[in-house]
Write a protein that binds this DNA or RNA. Structure first.
Lengths: 126, 126
DNA sequence: CTTGACCTTGACGTTGACGTCAACATCTAC
DNA sequence: GTAGATGTTGACGTCAACGTCAAGGTCAAG
């Protein structure tokens, strides 16, 4: 299949596909006319990248997963490097959540000071 | 005082102070040699901006607070426009927290699938 | 033959809040 | 007088992941 179909099936833009190639995440064969040619394995790679990016992974984070799939594993997450990224990401997310909870408390406190009673309108997100 | 002292007292860079001026958040008088000259009121403005930015506000968000102080109010948050920003920010933060909690659950689920037992090492951030 | 859908590379634009450098002026202290 | 700290404006660099042109080549259908 060509880049348009690949992109449609994976739910990304053709620009994104070319960008992934530029970043070394995927590769491409070329047909006689110079068009990029892809197969099912490429589709799995792009789908993996997309699903990871959707939940907040960077392309750098996605690399171990892609390499894991390329190495022939069933899923991108079944290699130790991928598991390490999973664990690191969980830590980062936990830290972000903690920071946001702190910020929320800070902002709510400032609001309460500036306008007593205003705080009652929003509930605690926990 | 000049820009260096102002920046030191407020805990920002001189570059940041000039940027705030460029964005119209603060103004400056000039002494004979062309140096920017500031007073205590300017320090309060920059301090207000810094404290807001620290908890995640943009400079655009900070503007009502600065104008509130300029209008002679004791605190930057005691004007209705500032309170509106507070409330909007609280909503945004709540939404970010919800999104992060969703992401965390998603990542934890993927990790659990890729490596059963690995999930036990991190605790729930709630 | 020509429209139109698809492809190519290359390169600038987006977003916010500055960092960093250039090239120069000013002032203080010794 | 000179070194060093400080000030000035101007302007490009940073970060991520593409979006969005520009200017063209390729190919099937009518």
């Amino acid at each position: 299949m060509r880049i348009g179909e690949l992109a449609r099936l994976a739910g990304v833009s053709t620009r994104a596909v070319r960008y992934y190639e530029q970043q070394g995440l995927i590769s491409s064969r070329r047909s006689a006319n110079g068009y990029r040619e892809y197969d099912e394995a490429d589709l799995r790679l792009v789908t993996e990248i997309r699903s990871l990016v959707t939940v907040g992974f960077t392309l750098r984070d996605a690399r171990p997963f892609v390499e894991c799939l390329r190495a022939g594993h069933e899923t991108g997450g079944s290699c130790p490097e991928s598991v390490a990224v999973y664990r690191r990401k969980l830590g980062e997310i936990d830290e972000q959540i903690r920071a946001l909870l702190d910020r929320r408390a800070e902002v709510a406190a400032q609001l309460a000071e500036a306008c007593p009673g205003c705080t009652l309108t929003r509930e605690d997100p926990r």
